[in-house]
Design a protein around this nucleic acid. Structure first.
Length: 471
RNA sequence: GCUCCCUUCGUCUAGUGGUUAGGACGUGGCCCUCUCAAGGCUGAAACACGAGUUCGAAUCUCGUAGGGAGCGCCA
């Protein structure tokens, strides 16, 4: 039998990190078993579902590389089917009309809470034959009152619920529209889902859904309930934690492979291995190895992973991402060094693309002023001599490449009997405007001869002005 | 309140009756060094608690404590 998994988000918001992890595990499981991965949009709540949210989910999945084999299916397009099956259950006596009003229900619930009882429907319309004047009935599922439901969960193991704990849930509202617990069952049945992999928060819904499966005459699928993902502080994931939408991670300079690698290690491990290529994940992933407890996200580990993928990545490919970030920042890269060259110079020194772009901005734009601390420390009168010497030698240099530039810098240091730092650092601040850049030779090569000479001149002038001013 | 679930370094985790409880991120120190990094070496850091079972328990059982989820005409 072909393994078929599904990811079934409701489009009431973007795809957040928890949903992304669920989608990843579903995807991984289906890939591992050479099965199918189905995407289903659970949009029956028309008030809260939006087309923007649908798009955000689609975008997030695509960015993460989680392609689906079937779908997206929309529940709002399947109402006829749900109605048909509600009617079937009604006809077979497995469901019934309930004429209790919302107000009455609320009242009873409040009463039960006050009496410290578990709030549940008391089943008073179970055997009702007559309609009630002026009330549009809902349809309730007639849940078995005896026995127990045993879930053989792939991550939790055996979980048992007594049917006495389950009340008769509403499967169709008074306006005729179906509710969640019913539509999931119908869809999972119709779409022949073999493995339902979803968040822990659905574990308590599972026995009800299993009973509906049985009432519909179908064997329920296998279940696997994933532990939750918490914020860095161990509290529930929320907007307060900043980047909750997966697309936000791109904006913050993360690579999808880093996010994926990070996510796969949240609740799952394969011995001591930390780095997983997509192929390895697919090959090694098994739902049975998933942890039982919730895990807090650790931003610095994500950064480490991101740095790893930046370091290992192909410069030409990474250049496209850097370009995207420069565009976000409004930096025009048309007149400046090749992006791939800038990437190469920064692969070992950037945790994110935001960092890389910010640190590399000086290659494409003149800076308005020097970093105050760096200038105060380095652009001092004693820097004029090495700056001037290097400038003069560089002006003579026709073969503008790192190796030659390196020789010039070294030679200047030797000639003036200065340590390399006394020569390189002033140049760095002169051309980059700050004390941070790739190695000075590589930096100058990328910057180009004209800009280099121009900025060194500016720096020398700056020192003169600054010194004069101080006097 | 009721039902269900969870509990190894700060964090992610390995571990399935016998380990000096391992790795990773982060963090301290040292080395390297033209800045920032990267890299190398090295240090600190955990079995929630209490009873059992057993020659022996992080591992099995039961309690306790703490955390979480669900209990909607939301999904």
């Amino acid at each position: 039998m072909t393994v078929r998994t599904r990811f079934a988000p409701s489009p009431t918001g973007y795809l957040h990190i928890g949903g992304a992890r669920t989608a990843l595990f579903c995807w991984l499981y289906s890939r591992h078993h050479d099965g199918d991965f189905i995407l289903r949009i659970e949009d029956t709540d028309r008030e809260r579902s939006t087309p923007e949210a649908v798009q955000a989910i689609l975008d997030g999945m695509e960015w993460l590389g989680l392609g689906h084999d079937e779908g997206p299916f929309y529940q709002t397009e399947r109402f006829d089917r749900y109605k048909e099956l509600v009617q079937k259950l009604l006809d077979e006596g497995k469901a019934y009309h309930c004429y209790c009003t919302k107000e009455e229900l609320d009242e009873r619930r409040a009463e039960q809470m006050a009496n410290k009882e578990k709030p549940r429907y008391d089943g008073r319309c179970r055997d009702r034959k007559e309609p009630r004047e002026g009330v549009d009935p809902v349809v309730r599922f007639r849940n078995p009152q005896e026995g127990a439901v045993v879930i053989e969960d792939h991550v939790r193991g055996k979980v048992t619920y007594n049917n006495t704990e389950l009340d008769d849930l509403i499967i169709a509202r008074s306006d005729g529209t179906p509710t969640y617990n019913f539509t999931v069952v119908v869809d999972d049945m119709d779409m022949e889902i073999t493995h339902v992999i979803r968040g822990d928060d659905h574990l308590n819904n599972t026995p009800r859904q299993i009973n509906i499966f049985k009432a519909l005459g179908k064997e329920p699928p296998q279940f696997a309930h994933l532990p939750m993902i918490l914020g860095p502080d161990g509290a529930k994931l929320s907007k307060r934690h900043g980047a909750v939408s997966v697309m936000e991670y791109r904006k913050e300079g993360f690579l999808p492979e880093a996010v994926r690698n990070y996510l796969v290690r949240l609740g799952w491990a394969h011995g001591d291995q930390e780095i997983f290529s997509t192929e390895e994940m697919v090959k090694l992933f098994d739902i049975a190895d998933v942890n039982h407890s919730a895990s807090a996200i650790n931003p610095s580990k994500l950064e480490w992973l991101n740095q790893h993928y930046i370091k290992e990545g192909d410069a030409e490919v990474l250049a496209e991402e850097l370009q995207w970030h420069f565009e976000q920042m409004g930096v025009d890269t048309a007149n400046g060094p090749s992006l791939a060259g800038v990437v190469k110079a920064n692969q070992e020194r950037a945790k994110t693309f935001v960092e890389m772009a910010e640190n590399s901005r000086f290659f494409y734009e003149d800076f308005a002023e020097y970093d105050e601390k760096a200038a105060r420390k380095v652009l001092k009168p004693d820097a004029v001599e090495p700056l001037q010497a290097v400038r003069d030698s560089l002006a003579e240099l026709d073969d503008w490449q790192a190796e030659k530039i390196h020789e010039v810098v070294i030679a200047t240091g030797e000639k003036l009997d200065l340590k390399l730092g006394k020569v390189a650092q002033p140049i760095r601040v002169a051309v980059a405007g700050k004390g941070i850049s790739p190695p000075i030779d590589a930096t100058l090569e990328l910057l180009g001869k004209d800009k280099t000479l121009e900025r060194i001149d500016t720096a020398i002038k700056h020192i003169a002005d600054h010194t004069a001013y101080e006097k």
